[in-house]
Design a protein around this nucleic acid. Sequence first.
DNA 1: TTTATTTATATCGCACGCGATGTAATAACA
DNA 2: TGTTATTACATCGCGTGCGATATAAATAAA
Lengths: 145, 145
Amino acid sequence: MEQLKLENQICFPFYAISRLITRAYQPYLEKLGITYPQYLVLLVLWEKDGLAVQDISEKLILNTNTVTPLLKRMETMDLIKREKAKEDERKVMIHLTREGKALQAAGASVPLKLLENMGDMAVDLDELLGMRDKIQEWIGCMGNK
Amino acid sequence: MEQLKLENQICFPFYAISRLITRAYQPYLEKLGITYPQYLVLLVLWEKDGLAVQDISEKLILNTNTVTPLLKRMETMDLIKREKAKEDERKVMIHLTREGKALQAAGASVPLKLLENMGDMAVDLDELLGMRDKIQEWIGCMGNK
DNA sequence: TTTATTTATATCGCACGCGATGTAATAACA
DNA sequence: TGTTATTACATCGCGTGCGATATAAATAAA
């Protein structure tokens, strides 16, 4: 049953490396007082503030039943504001607070630190970036649904 | 702030593709009545039965506080048995039940079906397998803490 | 203009994943 | 041998993820 060995699975390496990368981010995000998914939300909002819940949900490829509680926690932390859109009361628009915007300065240095970390671990950075681009193509295929 | 855009992050693609792959497995695993992490545990045990909790924890790169409840649920489902090792009462040895072993027949076809799925999605299989091997190298570097 | 359908979020329940901590058994050591 | 340290799991608390379902607003249909 060669195809059932763990090292021959396509699933496991992606599953494992995703968690290892999250772990690598953690010490830096801990200093900012945020989690990894919260950081992803901030990345999206730093790029464009005032998005609807659905926009964030689509960009992060997360369901609303994940995003809604995530955003509520971030509102409690005073990182964002949630308010209904005037033109369509079904939509909830997300805006950064002063605090949420202020975190960008500290958050900007995190990706570079991570890259340095990966470099120290004998991970070839060119390969890493090439793989990132390839995976993004796949996400484009798989993500729509 | 170009380095803060979501598409320039190394973290996000790995995070997203991992969840998309898990989603792709789900319909097949649902028929077997198991979850994705439970499938990973079975893969390990099908390869070598009678492992300690720690062995499974190391192979899957998961902490014991994740693995213990996972195994307890699988014991409730009658997929595995948990019993203390006689030579060292701290260890808990995990053995497949008849049911757990029986699932292997159905579980063996899942990886191939997944590969076919990925192929349909314009994902180049050679690239996929090459990437898998490369990620496994990284896991070897990062996994040991 | 009612009624039916669709859309955008939210709620519920459950299974992870993990940091922090606890506990019992074994090993190390004074 | 008695004490201390280490090891192997387990428990607790909390934050995701997600299937199933609910709710309210907007849109389409009758």
